[in-house]
Design a protein around this nucleic acid. Structure first.
Lengths: 330, 330
DNA sequence: TTGTAGGCGTTATCAG
DNA sequence: CTGATAACGCCTACAA
């Protein structure tokens, strides 16, 4: 409630002086002390709204993600948060639910609220960032790249797909199916392409894409796809699943069908959150979710602080954790 | 970038008129049309910062939760978000990490940013809300109640504890242990008290509290506590776990020890996220996470709209999903 | 180092 | 219904 004027009056100085103590501008020790006392007295907190209006810059960064219920993105969010907090920024978490409409609305808000910058994991790869760019608000792409030339923190999705497929082959499985996300999402397509590149030359499946399913990046998506794959002839003996939630769905269906790994090989890209199965029967390609967040946040803050280097792309490494046990004897 | 003045100039009207079309104040059809055209032309978006400074009220509500990585809270957040969005508010998600210091900082920001209201799941039951209340910013407590007299959306935690314990007794288990959260968190204590009230009279454990463990509301907490309980003599034959993440940890340890349900009875309060075990071997007391969010958001918005009734407390019902199979023959 | 004063973009009051 | 104008609370030249 108290304003800078009331503090100034109480301290016997000018409003400008009060402002200065809050902005690291030199003020004599005595006056500074007077101000501090008055601030404590009146329990003054600077009004951030007025400050951002004046400075055209809120100490807030927007983190726009497609699915807040996916632990991959919440870890990433934690990473962003920790770095941002450190640098004095608060984080507004915006959940787009993979909906380009919601995404567009949130990006508009970021502009209208003068937010300092945006970290964006795109819903559909078509977001219009021209408004943000026109107002020179820095944007960093994370997890998924955009149509614009931006700093990006991404994964080598194709390599992750390759790694997942290879680990199954090494364990002795031969007929690898694949479950991936919507074809419009690049990461889904790239990971599947990694699988395809391993499976095609091996020739154990005549037409690999018959064993490929596109589905939603959610538990239900994994369930549906896995059920279809199990009904195939020739049946697959293993599956690469390109997303953690789908992995859970697939494992549920396999478990219901009595084909828990290693009876049926499973390699999942992404950490399996909260699984209660003994963990090491499934191969995992771990993704550095938290690191993606911290890295993106650091890049964004550099931009906010005026860095004007050309856009950089950082590719963070995944880590393969192979299942302990291999395929059953043929 | 365009301001209301530029729009006004382009449309040949006064800035006040432009403002009016954005605030539902009557404006003649012709002028309204002129404004609409100019807005489209200049791609004008009202500056929310200026608006909130003037109105002393941002169309933003803060949702303060203790653990963004717990799916219970992300579901709750989804509920809040959906209702808020509907009503034209954006939601700022603040993760306190169960840290009262962070919590205090976020609450200060809510004040400093003139946010319209706060939905708070408290970290420690001691938050100082006097500042918010003094400025008559509505606050709704969710999941955990506070020291202040506020609208609250909570659960009957004791009854949930009773229900969890009863379902195990009904399945034929006799020596029920309990794993609960930090003693400072009321919900943890209340749920444990429910368990105690079932276990004490049955007399099958001489000193029930020897079989009670306080731990952190996280997977690790469940793991640690479960390991300790398994080493006890007399060993329990079942456990009530008062939180979803702890439940996951407990099940992991049991699985590693080869004592998967129903060999060892498990009842968990809270949904088990993403479990890949066949689901129905564990009893679950389902909590209406999303509903808590929607209910809290509705209450908050009523308050924002000026409702001044005395504080209400809503207790949302849980739902017991008993395990399909009972205890093994004794 | 300090104070004065103008303006950031809106909204609300008050005449007309 | 419409237009001029004064705030909202703060920051930052500019002047002293």
């Amino acid at each position: 409630m108290a304003t800078i004027y009331e503090v100034a009056a109480a301290a016997g100085v000018s409003p400008a002086t009060v402002s200065r103590v809050y902005n690291g501008v030199p003020v004599s020790a005595e006056k500074a002390e007077l101000v501090r006392a008055a601030v404590a007295e009146l329990r003054f907190t600077p009004n951030r709204t007025a400050r951002s209006l004046r400075r055209k810059n809120a100490e807030v960064i927007a983190l726009v993600i497609p699915d807040i219920e996916n632990p991959y993105f919440t870890s990433l969010a934690r990473g962003v948060e920790d770095v941002a907090q450190e640098a004095g920024y608060s984080v507004v978490l915006c959940n787009t639910d993979e909906d380009p409409g919601k995404e567009a609305r949130y990006l508009e808000i970021a502009v209208a609220e003068n937010m300092a910058g945006v970290i964006l994991a795109e819903a559909d790869g078509r977001a219009d960032l021209s408004e943000l760019i026109a107002r020179s608000r820095p944007v960093v792409a994370v997890d998924r790249s955009t149509l614009f030339d931006l700093d990006s923190v991404i994964l080598d999705n194709r390599a992750a797909g390759v790694a997942a497929a290879r680990t199954l082959i090494n364990s002795g499985y031969r007929r690898l199916a694949c479950i991936t996300g919507p074809a419009e999402i690049d990461t889904a397509e790239e990971r599947a392409e990694g699988w395809r590149s391993v499976v095609s030359p091996s020739g154990s499946l005549e037409r690999p894409d018959d064993h490929l399913r596109y589905s939603s990046f959610r538990v239900e998506g994994g369930r549906d796809a896995m059920a279809e794959l199990l009904a195939l002839d020739p049946a697959p003996d293993a599956v690469v699943v390109t997303n953690n939630l789908m992995g859970v769905g697939a494992l549920q269906v396999l478990s219901e069908a009595g084909r828990v790994p290693p009876a049926f090989g499973v390699a999942v890209i992404g950490d399996l959150p909260f699984t209660t199965l003994t963990p090491n029967a499934t191969s995992i390609v771990r993704l550095p979710a938290r690191d993606m967040g911290t890295t993106a946040a650091r890049m964004l803050i550099e931009r906010i602080n005026g860095d004007t280097e050309p856009a950089r792309t950082v590719i963070l490494p995944h880590e393969v954790v192979a299942a302990a046990s291999g395929a059953p004897a043929l």
